[in-house]
Simulated assay, not measured.
Amino acid sequence: MDVIPVIDVKHGQAVRARRGNRASYRPIETPLAEGNDPVALALGLRALFAFPMLYVADLDGIEGRGRNAGLAERLADALPGVELLIDEGASPCSVAAELATARAGFTPVVGTEILKGADDVAALRALARERYVLSLDFKGEAFSGPPEVLENADLWPERVIVMTLAKVGSGEGPDLQRVASLVEKGGARRIYAAGGVRNRADIAALSGAGAAGVLVASALHDKTITAGDLDEIAGRFRR
Rank of each mutant, 00 (worst) to 15 (best):
V3R: 11
I7T: 03
K10L: 15
A14H: 01
A14R: 06
R18I: 15
R19N: 08
A23Y: 09
Y25S: 07
T30I: 11
G35V: 01
G35F: 13
P38G: 01
V39S: 04
G44M: 00
L48S: 02
V56M: 00
D58L: 06
G61I: 00
I62D: 04
G64F: 10
L79H: 10
P80E: 02
G89V: 05
S91P: 05
S91M: 00
V95R: 03
R103M: 02
G105P: 14
F106T: 11
F106H: 12
F106D: 00
F106V: 14
K116D: 10
G117K: 14
D120I: 07
A123N: 03
R125P: 08
V133C: 11
L134T: 13
K139H: 07
E141W: 00
E141M: 06
A142R: 14
S144Y: 02
E151A: 15
L155M: 04
W156E: 07
P157G: 07
P157F: 08
L165T: 00
P174R: 06
L176K: 12
L176A: 01
K185S: 08
G187W: 12
A193E: 13
R200D: 03
A201T: 06
I203C: 07
S207N: 13
A211T: 04
A211N: 12
A212V: 06
L215S: 07
A217T: 09
A217E: 13
H221C: 13
T224M: 05
G228T: 09
D229L: 07
I233H: 01
R239L: 13
